[in-house]
Simulated scan of single mutants.
Amino acid sequence: MKYLWTEDTGAGLHFWKLVNQLFFDNALVVESKESNQGILDSLISLNAKEEDEYYIAFDYVPDNQDIRNKYRQLKQLVEKSEAKVIILDMICFEYFILAFDKLVSWTGTGKTDKIKMREDILAAIEDHRIDLSKIDNQMTMHYLSGFKRYSTERVMKSLVGEFTQNEKWSVKGPLMGECWYKDCCVSEHPDSLRCGKPEVDDGNEKMRMLIQSEEIQKVIMINNSN
C-alpha cells in the first residue's frame, strides 16, 4: 500500500483527499496524524510491510525553531526506513493556495494592497522561508513586522486568509470552501463578499487546475503506478 500522512486536519486534510481522488485515482491511503509530532510518533512505532510506501506531508519552515528540530528528527527516522518513507518537499498547505496563479481572479478580491504583498512575498521565497532582504516595499515590510510570533508559515496562513474571507473560498474550516471543488460559486447572501470569476464552472476541473499548478506539482510527483 501507499500512504500519505499529513499533519493537516480540516481543509488541509480535505485538500489531500481531493488530490488523492483526482490525481492518484484513490491509490493512496490518506491519513491525518493531526500534528508534526503525531507524524513523528507514528513513524517511531511504524512496522511497515515490504511493499508499503509512506509519503510524509510535513510543513517545514526553518525560521521556526521547534519545526526545525522536529524536521531533523524526521530526517533521521527516514534514513532508517530503507527508502520506505519519503518526505514531500513542501512549506505548508497554505503556500499551495497562496502561490496558485488563479487565486486573485478566482476569489475576486479587491484588496490591492494585499495583492502587492502577495507578489512581494512569493518573489522572496527561498529555501522554505521568506528572505526579507529581497523585499524593499515598505508596506509589505510593515505587514510582516506586525507578527508577534513571526514565521513563514504564519505569514502564509494570514495572507491566504485575506484572499479567502468569503466562506465559499475559505481554507480554514473542516473542508475547503465549496468554490474550490463544486460546480458553481454563488454568493447566497447580499452582504457576502464577491466570489470572483473562475473560467470554469466544473468543480473537478477547478481542483485539477489547482493540483496541476506549478508549486503543487513540484511536491506531489509521486509514483502512482500500481
Rank of each mutant, 00 (worst) to 15 (best):
S32T: 14
N64C: 08
K116R: 15
M139K: 03
K102A: 06
Q73A: 01
E119S: 15
D63T: 06
D25G: 04
K80V: 07
V30W: 05
G161S: 02
I97S: 02
Y54E: 03
Q76P: 00
D113C: 09
D66C: 00
F93D: 08
L46Y: 03
Y95A: 12
I67G: 02
D113W: 03
I97K: 02
D52F: 04
K114L: 14
A83F: 04
S158N: 15
E119M: 08
S105N: 06
A57L: 08
A57V: 10
M90K: 03
M90C: 11
L122R: 04
D120Y: 01
V78S: 12
S35C: 00
D66G: 00
R129L: 14
Y143H: 04
S133M: 03
Y143G: 13
G38Y: 05
F58P: 11
F96P: 04
T112R: 01
H128S: 14
N47Y: 04
G108I: 11
I44Q: 15
Y143T: 10
K114C: 11
R129W: 05
K148Q: 10
V85M: 08
I87F: 07
T112L: 03
D136H: 11
D127I: 00
S32N: 07
I39P: 08
I130Y: 08
E119A: 14
L122T: 09
Y60N: 06
T112D: 09
L159C: 09
